[in-house]
Write a protein that binds this DNA or RNA. Structure first.
Length: 419
RNA sequence: GUGGGUAUAGCUCAGUUGGUUAGAGCGCCAGGUUGUGGCCCUGGAGGUCAAGAGUUCGAGACUCUUUACUCACCCCA
């Protein structure tokens, strides 16, 4: 038997309604915020990710699905959503009226050891906004994420924000942090010791108590911001305050991708304690477009992991209704009556009512059982007597009540009952 | 890449110090009066006990190897 590849999952028919639910909310909320969808290819030139995500990151170093195509080009399956959108912006949208506001729902691929909330093919809902430098847009993006999360039922999320600065100030901070960490290297865990050279910001994120105590006295990003960056961060906080959006400033919050500047943020469910707790992470990346060869263009966005979101929804005990239940099942008591069932089902469908009948020749009892399993709301039964009298029983499967309805009034009756 | 756990029916799992023909619940199919679902009862289909080797008179069980899955670390969504 051929089985599913490691780190992938089928979204089976009895689960897909959950995905449709969160996706429909994503489309609804983005529309409220005046964002339009963008769909970029599943694969891009490898170089795009090397230059945007960052050559020092684990994602680029060891987690990309990279291969040579038949033309000898190095191709990579997208490991995240931002790079492709940035490329498309530079290539096709840089002469548009700014700001350009977009969202995407896309699979992404990382070659990692799978675990709860982490797959090799996973799915992201993301937002990218180009061409607005002010903190108003940071607030817009954060608020959109929050509205989305609340609309899917995640009401008790923690929002953490921080600013990691930009330009010279950021470089300067990196240097100072590195010096501090080097001086205290002997007190850090082995993993953090290797991080000092590779990616010192990441040390701030370490969960070990021993490292945390070293970090308590470490220089903090927000103390090394330029005046402009500081004003930007203050403005963001005041907008959030004014709009009653609760947040905590986490001076140790950093992001793993190289392209972030200034504002960074995460949404974390309060119910879980796993390391995969962050379901939404984002921030500003003012240098990305320029570093990819475009005109200097400020940008801000977020990525949200749909698998993690659905896990969090489940953990929070939130129940998602299956919106795709069958509306009407047409049962027939006798094999000769199947033709009338086919006809009636066809009429129901033309009237916009989802309808089905048994195509496998089962007994009436089995047909009813099947209708029940499909979650059918109504069941019309055809028998010899009905054919003669022209009056059919419409059974409401929720409460068991049956209406006797003349053949020509069936559609009208069901449409009325469905409301 | 590192460390733990698991592998028996479609699913969740039992299976005694190694001992006849491999077990349950759920699910699936059928029946329980000829035309009415859910609850209940009865029956049926469905397993190379992950694979390979070893120990033994005898292995689902014990040993080794491999593989797969899973959880955690790293990293990230």
């Amino acid at each position: 038997m051929i089985s599913i590849p490691k780190g992938t999952k089928d979204i089976l028919p009895d689960q897909s309604f959950k995905w449709q639910f969160v996706e429909s909310i994503a489309r609804k909320i983005t529309r409220l915020y005046n964002l339009k969808e963008i769909r970029t290819p599943i694969f891009e030139h490898t170089e795009l990710f090397e230059r945007s995500v960052g050559e020092t990151t684990d994602i680029v170093n060891k987690e990309m699905y990279t291969f040579l195509d038949k033309g000898g080009r190095s191709i990579t399956l997208k490991p995240e959503g931002t790079a492709g959108v940035a490329r498309a912006f530079i290539e096709s949208l840089s002469n548009s009226t700014l700001p350009v506001k977009m969202y995407y729902i896309t699979p992404a691929f990382r070659y990692e050891r799978p675990q709860a909330g982490r797959l090799r093919q996973f799915h992201q809902f993301g937002v990218e906004v180009f061409g607005a430098a002010g903190a108003e847009m940071d607030a817009e993006v954060i608020t959109l994420a929050k509205d989305f999360l609340e609309a899917v039922g995640m009401n008790s999320l923690k929002l953490e924000i921080n600013s990691i600065g930009s330009g010279e100030a950021r470089k300067n901070y990196n240097k100072i942090l590195k010096e501090y960490l080097t001086q205290n290297a002997d007190k850090l865990c082995p993993v953090c010791q290797t991080r000092i050279e590779k990616n010192p910001l990441r040390v701030l994120d370490c969960k070990l108590a021993s490292c945390k105590s070293v970090l308590a006295d470490a220089p903090k990003t927000i103390d090394y911001l330029s005046e402009e960056d500081k004003a930007h961060f203050e403005r963001l906080k005041s907008i959030l305050d004014d709009n009653n959006i609760k947040y905590t400033v986490n001076p140790y919050l950093v992001r793993g991708l190289d392209y972030y500047t200034k504002t960074v943020f995460e949404f974390i469910p309060q119910t879980v304690n796993s390391a995969q707790e962050t379901i939404c992470g984002g921030g500003r990346y003012d240098n990305l477009i320029e570093s990819l060869g475009g005109k200097p263009t400020p940008a801000v966005g977020f990525g949200l992991g749909l698998e993690r979101l659905l896990l969090a929804i489940e953990n929070a005990g939130i129940n998602i209704e299956d919106a795709n239940k069958l509306e009407t099942f047409v049962a027939y008591a006798d094999a000769e009556l199947v033709d009338e069932a086919i006809k009636l089902v066809g009429e129901l469908r033309k009237a916009g009512i989802s309808a089905d009948y048994d195509q496998t020749g089962r007994s009436l009892k089995a047909q009813l059982k099947y209708a029940d399993k499909q979650g059918a709301q109504f069941c019309v039964t055809i028998g010899g007597d009905e054919l003669k009298s022209g009056v059919y029983p419409i059974k409401n499967m929720r409460n068991g009540n049956t209406l006797q309805v003349a053949r020509q009034n069936i559609i009208e009756t069901i449409l009325k009952e469905l409301k």
